[in-house]
Amino acid sequence: MTAFRQYFEDNPEIFAALVAAIAILGGLLGSIIGAKIQANGGHAQAAAAQKAAEIAAEAQRVAALWGVRQVQVAEFIRCAREAVAISQRLYEAEPDDEELRRQVHAAYQAMGSKAAELILIATEKVVDVVEATLLAAEELEQEAMDSGSTAHAESVFTHLYLSRDMVTARAARVAQHALDATTGETYESRMQALRAVPGLSENLAHELAANSGRGNRLQWIERGGRKSGALEEKLAELVRETRAMLRSEDYVAPAPVPRQRRRWWRAA
C-alpha cells in the first residue's frame, strides 16, 4: 500500500488522470441508474393512467346502459297503458268503427315493438316479465275486439229496455224474449224483433242477434276487467324487476378513480 501511494506521489499526472477517469465513470453510472429508475417510474405511471382510463370507460358504458334500460322500460309501460286505455273505448263504440279498431291494433303493435327492443338489453328476469306482460296484453286486446262492441250494444239495449217511452220499452221486452229463447228463434227472427225497437241501430241489432247466448254485458265487462287486472299485475311486477335491475334502492356514488402516486424525482 505504501509503495502504491509512493508511486502516485511520484507521478501526480497519472493520479490526476485516474481521478478524472473515476469521475467520468461515476457520472456515467449515475446517469444509467437514474435513467433506469425514471424509466421504471414512467412505466408504472403509464400503467396507472391506463387503469384509470379503463375504469372511466367501464363507468361510462354502465351509465349508458342504465340510461337506455330506464328509457326503454318506461316507454314499454307507457305503450301498455295507452293500449289499455284505447282498447276500453271499444266498449263504448259502434261495431262498425273500423278506425278505432285500427288504432287499438296499432297501439298493441307499438307495445310489441318496444318489447322486442327491451329483450335485447334487459336482464333475463325483466325479459321474462316483459314477455308475460305482452301475452296478457294480447289476451286483453282479443277480448276487447271480440266483446267490446257487443257489450256496447247490450248497454244501449238495456237503456231502451228501461225507457219511460212505453212503445220503446214494450218493443225491447219482446226483443229480449226472442234473445232469451233457447229454441224456436233464429238469427232472422231475433233481428226482426230487434229492428222493431226504436233507437236501436242495425249494427247494434246485429251484435245482439249474432251473440245471443254468449252471455250478457256484465259478464263481458267482468271478463275484460279480469284480463285488464292481469295485465296491471304484470306491469306492477315489471316495475319491481326493473327497479332491481337498475338498483334503484342502492346509494349510487361515482366510482373513485385511483390516485396516481407522484414519484420522488417529480416531487419538486
Rank of each mutant, 00 (worst) to 15 (best):
M245N: 04
I221A: 02
S248A: 06
A244V: 15
R226T: 11
A16P: 02
D10P: 01
S147V: 10
A17T: 12
A47N: 11
E237K: 12
D10H: 11
R78T: 14
R89D: 14
A153Y: 07
A47I: 14
A169C: 15
E185L: 08
R101W: 05
Y161L: 14
A116N: 14
R214V: 08
P95I: 10
T158S: 08
D97I: 05
E92P: 01
A171S: 08
G229C: 09
Q219V: 07
A107P: 04
I77V: 14
V197G: 05
A52N: 06
D250E: 15
S228M: 10
R223T: 13
K227E: 10
E232R: 06
S163A: 12
M245P: 00
R89N: 10
A47V: 13
G229T: 06
R266Y: 02
Q70V: 05
I33A: 10
L246W: 03
N211Q: 13
L28R: 02
V257K: 13
L140M: 09
I22N: 00
L238V: 08
I121P: 02
E92V: 10
R247A: 12
A169S: 14
A210L: 08
A144E: 07
D10T: 09
D97V: 06
I77S: 06
A93R: 01
R217P: 12
I119A: 08
T182G: 02
G225E: 14
A74I: 15
A16C: 01
V68M: 10
A175D: 05
Y251D: 07
W66L: 04
V62F: 13
A3R: 04
L140R: 05
R259H: 01
